[in-house]
Amino acid sequence: MESGQGLGELIPPLADSDYYLDHYDDLSCIITQGLSGKIIVNGQPYEEEMLALNNISLAELSNLINYMNSQWYPDKIEVNLNTIKAQLANCAD
């Protein structure tokens, strides 16, 4: 888990994850709203509920995304508060 590999078929990986890259512009929404139902990550279905982190601040949210990028997606440019706000304004719900 320390290296972003997830946990069996329970928790999907963050590292080398097609789902992460495909939903890159929705990360703020996913983190703050959580996920339920089935998702497919690198061909493997996962359906445990991901709890919403609904009391996280915008600064914490950008730190979190930048941390994940720095660990596993070093080519991504740093996100800032404006990126986060724009993502949150376009959440599906």
């Binding site: 888990m1 946990l7 069996g8 329970l10 928790i11 509920e49 709890l51």
Partner: peptide, 15 residues
């Protein structure tokens, strides 16, 4: 099972 905090890390060490 629904523990969102330390359990996944602990389970990984049990593994």
């Amino acid at each position: 099972v629904h523990c969102p905090s330390i359990c996944p890390k602990v389970t990984q060490q049990m593994l």
